[in-house]
Design a protein around this nucleic acid. Structure first.
Length: 211
DNA sequence: CACCAGGAATGTA
DNA sequence: TACATTCATGGT
């Protein structure tokens, strides 16, 4: 039993005990998960909810809905999520990708890393967005790394790396290969950051303090 | 007023 | 490979 494995188990145990089971990804369907994954890039989730609410109001919160909407209109509706000029085009790109590739039914036939590569070729989809889609929309076992994850691993002296794929493999090499576990773990880390560690991780009242 | 949020693309060295 | 810059709204 490696020390890293022990630390990751410990962190998960503490967070799960503190916050309980997480309900992620909050969305009505898979299209909405993908759309939300793009809209939430460097943006507070509350603003994404506002943007998605606008899309639903016009019944265009879907790949087909986005493709059938003029980009000028799309920009206006997703404005609360910020970076609306680029995100409107990103939504067009990812929607076109899904429609042209047979949506979830056909794409789910690819194995994990083949599909990951295909997603990463869509302009507007980087590592975190791709992995969020794979984990939460396709239910594939891959760990999502975000800014908070990097902080936690750094502050707990698990690694000083900031490389996305290296951080991801630290988790995946030391945890069970389980989509549910990865989904919970990422959600718990985000929840911790939302509640305690916005500016200074491991602040006095953080549940991870002292480990 | 400054700072941050469930990042990615692009350019530079 | 490793940084720097740009994109933009809304809450604290």
């Amino acid at each position: 039993m490696g020390i890293v494995r022990q630390k990751l188990r410990n962190i998960y145990g503490i967070l799960h005990e503190y916050f309980g089971e997480q309900q992620w990804w909050p969305a009505e369907d898979k299209d909405e998960i993908v759309i939300g994954a793009v809209l939430t890039q460097n943006t507070a989730w509350i603003n994404v909810e506002s943007a998605i609410k606008n899309l639903k109001k016009y019944d265009i919160c879907s790949f087909k809905g986005i493709l059938n909407t003029k980009i000028s209109v799309l920009k206006e509706q997703i404005k609360p999520a910020g970076f609306f000029n680029q995100k409107a085009q990103y939504l067009k790109n990812i929607s076109e990708f899904f429609i042209e590739n047979g949506e979830f039914e056909r794409l789910s036939k690819y194995d994990l890393y083949n599909l990951r590569d295909k997603l990463l070729h869509v302009s507007g989809v980087g590592y975190e967005t791709a992995d969020s889609i794979l984990l939460y929309a396709f239910d594939m076992p891959i760990f999502v790394v975000d800014a908070y994850t990097k902080r936690v691993l750094n502050r707990h002296n698990i690694t000083d790396s900031t490389n996305y794929n290296r951080l991801q493999h630290i988790f995946m090499d030391n945890c069970a290969d389980d989509a549910y576990l990865f989904a919970q773990y990422h959600a718990l880390i985000v929840e911790t950051a939302k509640n305690f560690c916005k500016v200074r991780p491991l602040c006095d009242d953080c549940p991870l303090k002292g480990i």
